[in-house]
């Protein structure tokens, strides 16, 4: 998920060898994959590190809101499915960090950047999970939005990222179906359950639309990412694709999209939404969402309270290799 990093612009490179640069762009234009040891412009490398690490951080921070309901899942089947889903996200984080490492940066550095607030994660995870229906809504909407973003990334020009995304997309689409199935069950359940489902949709809808980043009119920064075929579609076109896919799914289970201005445009076949509160988006990105502080505090706490464990593992490994050398 989580391509908001692509909305930030790097300073253009200077003094890159022109012949290299031209050959590089030619490879991109002919849909060749760039691999770890290939020459690449520094800005391309930096953009990818920022994008892949933000994606990895999002997976890891994203474990927290859903992890909030593992111990309280309402049936053993739901519990096992949720735990497996959150575990999948940890796995996504792991191989995304590995993909970033192919660009010459270590996982430790990247984690330090997250904890020092120098790196971001997707704004969506700064919202709280208040009821069980939120677990359904996250799977259905957040993973649904993520898939829209991620499917084009399977064709990203950078090989290691593209290949990681293929596997991630398969798992995300499974999560999305699981989430929708939770919503279906709630929507067909007791009046209290249906109300719970509607309330979750009411709270998650707008933040999910924001996951695609600012409108194209405000985001002039994707041009280079587009030329490099890291990003292939604009924020607005992906957002529209998500809306068009999701609105009928909500109607199908009798839930209302919380947008009085929503209407089907007969001519284009698109569902058109009312204005999005971009002020809220900027505020949450800047640290002012409901859970920004808690999420970061939880990651820092895990990092700090786990320090002695990591040190012990290193000390033991060092003793082992010293013994081997002595033998």
């Amino acid at each position: 998920m989580y391509t908001q990093a692509l909305n930030t612009k790097d300073a253009p490179d200077t003094a890159e060898p022109e012949a290299h640069a031209a050959r590089f762009q030619e490879r991109i234009d002919t849909e060749e994959r760039i691999e770890a040891n290939d020459w690449m412009p520094e800005a391309y490398r930096r953009t990818l590190i920022r994008q892949i690490s933000q994606h990895a951080h999002s997976e890891i921070v994203g474990m927290l809101p859903e992890g909030n309901w593992i111990t309280r899942a309402p049936s053993l089947r739901r519990k096992a499915a949720l735990l497996a889903k959150v575990q999948d996200e940890g796995g996504h984080g792991l191989y995304l960090y590995a993909a970033a490492e192919t660009l010459g940066v270590s996982r430790e550095e990247l984690v330090d950047q997250l904890l020092a607030q120098k790196a971001r994660y997707s704004s969506i995870f700064n919202y709280p999970t208040l009821t069980w229906a939120d677990i359904g809504a996250i799977g259905w909407l957040v993973d649904g939005a993520a898939i829209m973003n991620q499917i084009p990334l399977c064709r990203c020009s950078y090989g290691p990222y593209a290949r990681a995304m293929i596997r991630i997309c398969k798992e995300e689409s499974f999560h999305q179906r699981q989430g929708y199935e939770i919503m279906v069950t709630l929507a067909r359940g007791t009046p209290e359950q249906k109300e719970m489902a509607q309330d979750a949709l009411n709270r998650w809808w707008a933040p999910c639309l924001m996951m695609f980043g600012p409108p194209d009119t405000e985001s002039q920064h994707s041009d280079t990412s587009m030329a490099w075929k890291i990003k292939r579609f604009t924020n607005d076109s992906l957002r529209q694709k998500f809306i068009d896919a999701t609105v009928p799914q909500a109607h199908h289970i009798g839930l209302a999209i919380p947008d009085p201005a929503l209407r089907l445009d007969e001519a284009s076949g698109h569902w058109l939404t009312g204005p999005i509160d971009w002020e809220e988006f900027r505020r949450v990105l800047a640290g002012g969402g409901p859970c920004n502080r808690e999420r970061l505090a939880a990651r820092r706490r895990a990092h700090e309270t786990g320090a002695w464990v990591r040190e012990a593992a290193m000390a033991h490994a060092a003793k082992q290799s010293a013994q081997k050398q002595a033998a």
């Binding site: 890891i60 474990m63 927290l64 992890g67 593992i70 111990t71 735990l83 497996a84 959150v86 575990q87 940890g90 796995g91 984080g93 792991l94 960090y97 996982r107 939880a298 706490r301 895990a302 309270t305 786990g306 320090a307 464990v309 990591r310 593992a313």
Partner: peptide, 16 residues
């Protein structure tokens, strides 16, 4: 209960 709070990412996956 460790989910999201383990000392390493690898151990996060193992505990789950």
């Amino acid at each position: 209960e460790w989910t999201g709070h383990a000392p390493t990412l690898e151990e996060e996956l193992a505990l789950a």
